[in-house]
């Protein structure tokens, strides 16, 4: 069975590849951005260089990164690791500032109260500041998710297969079917990521939706 000239099995496996290549870097990037954002906020002199530096990362063209990384990492050009690393860099680029902003959105009196209760700085980060930064971080994560889903497709040009492969395929065969299918699948995936992040945010922030019953 096939859709617009593409076997269904292939659409499915390209979609899974796409999820893997766009999604995993999102998680790793978030985990890296948290300590970086925290460092930017707690060590004042680091703020400028870190925010500017990670911001610059995002301006490196993805195609250039896919081609350069094998030389830096010593990997094969076709190795998906190149794409994972590149996407992780983009995620870190977008999220470091978001995490710093999110953590600084925690009201000062709340932070002081936490310190006065006897939280060590690290415990305070985990137990008080990060949970309160979730809404801001989640907003940044949604941008990064959409950006990742979109940028990953470029990796088709260096032969790493995912939904972008449908574009090169359609281009080579001069067929519209695979291209339209690829666009629809990418958009659907971006929406799914977005809904997933919104859902997790809602679960993590029950206090935001609790009704005013007092």
């Amino acid at each position: 069975m096939s859709v617009w000239g593409v076997p269904l099995g292939e659409v499915w496996s390209l979609t899974l590849d796409h999820i893997y290549l766009a999604g995993l870097p999102l998680l790793i990037g978030l985990l890296l951005a948290i300590p970086l954002g925290w460092a930017a906020l707690t060590r004042r002199w680091l703020y400028g260089p870190l925010i500017a530096g990670t911001g610059l990362l995002y301006t490196i063209p993805s195609l250039a990164l896919f081609i350069l990384l094998p030389g830096i990492l010593g990997t094969q050009i076709l190795d998906p690791v190149n794409v994972l690393v590149a996407m992780t860099l983009y995620t870190v680029a977008l999220l470091t500032r978001t995490v710093a902003d999110g953590l600084s959105s925690v009201p000062n009196h709340v932070r002081q109260a936490a310190t006065a209760m006897g939280y060590s700085p690290l415990r305070r980060l985990v137990a008080v500041e990060l949970p309160l930064a979730v809404p801001v971080i989640s907003a940044g994560l949604r941008v990064a998710a959409v950006s990742n889903v979109s940028i990953v497709s470029v990796a088709a040009l260096v032969g790493v297969s995912q939904l972008g492969t449908l574009f090169t395929d359609g281009f080579n065969r001069n067929a519209m079917g695979p291209i339209v299918l690829g666009v629809i699948a990418s958009v659907t995936l971006a929406v799914l990521f977005d809904v997933l992040i919104l859902g997790v945010t809602k679960v993590l922030t029950p206090w935001q939706t609790a009704g005013r019953s007092a």
Binding site: P107, H109, V110, Q112, A113, A114, A116, V128, P131, L132, T205, W207
Partner: peptide, 10 residues
Amino acid sequence: IQHAGLFPHR
């Protein structure tokens, strides 16, 4: 403290 400084997420 003045504004109680409660943890809004708990």
